[in-house]
């Protein structure tokens, strides 16, 4: 089996008296989508922050490509090929797609001895990269504010991939999207996987996760409730495992009863 691109071994993180994470192990391999599932407050955000270098763990180890390491900062993590796409996406709505694509990493060219922002290259590359991922732009100079939520998400993911991400951490990429938009993002996740990128897909939507995921790790109140291969677990079992899964089933039963009563 491939060496994991990034691996957490028995990681714990405390905030004062609060145990945010306890003994959690997690890894992602090349060309794999590993879903991190859990209800609100399960510790997903803390785990992402450990993985992206925002927090350093109080206990446990981090391995990148099999070698022990520590993340000094989010920038350091990014340099190691681990890119996080947060929910706010780090996009500027009033700026063009191409300018956003290259934000902070603007391509330069030399004209008459002056280092200029290479607008043509930026437009061409952003357009090409996005169309390679199946996002057809009308115009690379249109403001990001005119894109749909799904397109923005795809732009942020495409940008991370273009700048050399080997591991993509996607924080709830489909949570604010409609059905069609979510499916566009899910397709892009499958495509990233086909390129050999390891995707960590954080979600509380089992339906979205089950479609694209290869492995599933459940977090419950800061602890891991197990990691499952897709062939080991069904969607319903996964739903039941998640906090609230049982409640949903109960609710369903109750509604059926109510409806039967009406007839």
């Amino acid at each position: 089996m491939d060496t994991p691109l990034v691996e957490l071994k028995s990681v714990s993180k405390y905030f004062g008296s609060v145990i945010a994470l306890k003994d959690v192990s997690f890894d992602v391999r090349p060309g794999e989508v590993h879903c991190l599932l859990g209800d609100n407050g399960a510790g997903k955000s803390t785990l992402i922050k450990v993985l992206s270098g925002v927090h350093s763990p109080d206990e446990g180890e981090i391995l990148v490509g099999g070698a022990h390491t520590r993340f000094n900062s989010p920038k350091d993590t990014l340099d190691k090929g681990i890119a996080t796409v947060y929910q706010d996406l780090a996009l500027v709505p009033l700026m063009s797609v191409a300018r956003n694509f290259f934000l902070g990493r603007e391509p330069l060219k030399k004209t008459w001895g002056l280092r200029q922002f290479d607008v043509d290259y930026a437009n061409r590359t952003a357009y090409q990269q996005l169309s390679d991922m199946g996002i057809q732009l009308r115009n690379p100079e249109q403001p990001v504010g005119t894109l749909s939520g799904g397109e923005r998400q795809c732009l942020a993911i495409a940008r991370a991939i273009h700048f050399g991400a080997k591991v993509l951490i996607l924080d709830e990429p489909t949570s604010a999207l409609g059905v069609h938009q979510a499916s566009v993002v899910l397709k892009l996740i499958v495509q990233s996987k086909a390129r050999g990128i390891g995707v960590i897909f954080i979600s509380h939507n089992v339906h979205h996760a089950y479609v694209v995921g290869d492995r599933f790790t459940l977090l419950k109140r800061g602890r891991s409730a197990g990691t499952y291969q897709k062939n080991e677990i069904s969607r319903d079992q996964l739903l039941n495992l998640m906090a609230g899964g049982k409640e949903l089933v109960d609710l369903e039963q109750e509604i059926i009863k109510l409806n039967n009563g009406k007839r």
């Binding site: 947060y86 706010d88 996009l91 500027v92 934000l103 902070g104 990493r105």
Partner: peptide, 8 residues
């Protein structure tokens, strides 16, 4: 904030 996150 987005700018800062992108290293600007």
């Amino acid at each position: 904030n987005a700018a800062r996150n992108m290293g600007v």
